[in-house]
Design a protein around this nucleic acid. Structure first.
Lengths: 158, 158
DNA sequence: GTCATTGCTTGGCTGCATCAAGCATCTAAC
DNA sequence: GTTAGATGCTTGATGCAGCCAAGCAATGAC
């Protein structure tokens, strides 16, 4: 936290003035932990792991090549193979060789896979309730601030 | 929410009016992913896993019994044993039998452990830069909104 | 004392993550 | 074209993280 001493104001400054870097980090950490805890629990209700749920969520709108999935999930490409294997075995996604480049396998969520995403999101009660704690103005601000925190750079992958 | 009418308005509503539940969830997901990606990378610089880093962060202020760690990390108690084993083997934490109840082992971060936390937090450049994208007013709002999202209920554990 | 409860550990099993190595395909350069 | 390199995916090996069931030790209630 606020290091040695020297900065007496910083500590409880969080309440009113510019929140200290660490204080803000702590709250972001809490929000992140809450989100993942909720997602993990909701996914478990449907027999899925958090990582599997994250992948299905990425695929809900459009198919993605395995390579792109590795990028989005920030993990090694070799990881994706097993991940997709397990989801494919359960009929939630399928691989389709790309027409233009036969090295590429596009992973597409099946209807059952998309339905699983819907159910999981609906089961994320903790997060829904958290949002409900804000008024409309609060939700709008939060949405806007989070958008500024992480501008949607990592997008184009198709 | 406000979705009485069937169709088209809700979709891009995120831009201006009350952001729809899913749009807000998506941004929260992005923020959470960004935070953990950054934490994982920073921890890796010091040869630690994300989970190990999370545990050290929890212990930075005060010792906690293993049971409490399981609660905070939202995992099975049996998990903590191995986690603490590995950190203890590296001299970052140590176990101390509780004076009042000898079943309890309090886990305390060593000075080296606390130093590791400091270095890791300092290495979270991505998150720091994200905060820097907001002005002071933005940081204050975000801090306040995140505080309302997750009121600090889960606290007392000592 | 006895017995149920609580805190931690162990063992077994799965999934997730890494790396190194390999095959197939595409691209470019000759 | 043929070769050489780059790129996309898979495999195998290893370690960590997660769960569960089972066990021991200590506490607390009686």
């Amino acid at each position: 936290m606020a290091h040695t001493s020297a900065l007496p104001a910083a500590r409880s400054a969080a309440q009113d003035s510019d929140p200290d870097h660490d204080a803000l980090m702590e709250r972001l950490a809490r929000a992140a932990a809450g989100y993942y805890r909720d997602l993990t629990a909701a996914a478990a209700l449907h027999g899925l792991t958090m990582t599997q749920a994250k992948m299905l969520i990425l695929l809900r709108r459009q198919p993605l090549p395995m390579r792109a999935l590795a990028g989005r999930l920030a993990c090694d490409a070799s990881n994706i193979t097993g991940l997709v294997d397990r989801l494919e075995a359960r009929g939630l996604v399928s691989r389709h060789a790309d027409a233009a480049d036969r090295r590429i396998k596009n992973v597409v969520a099946t209807e059952e896979g998309r339905e699983a995403v819907r159910l999981i999101c609906a089961d994320m009660r903790g997060t829904s309730e958290a949002f409900a704690r804000l008024d409309e103005e609060g939700r709008r601000s939060l949405y806007e601030l989070l958008g500024r925190l992480h501008p949607e750079d990592t997008q184009e992958t198709t």
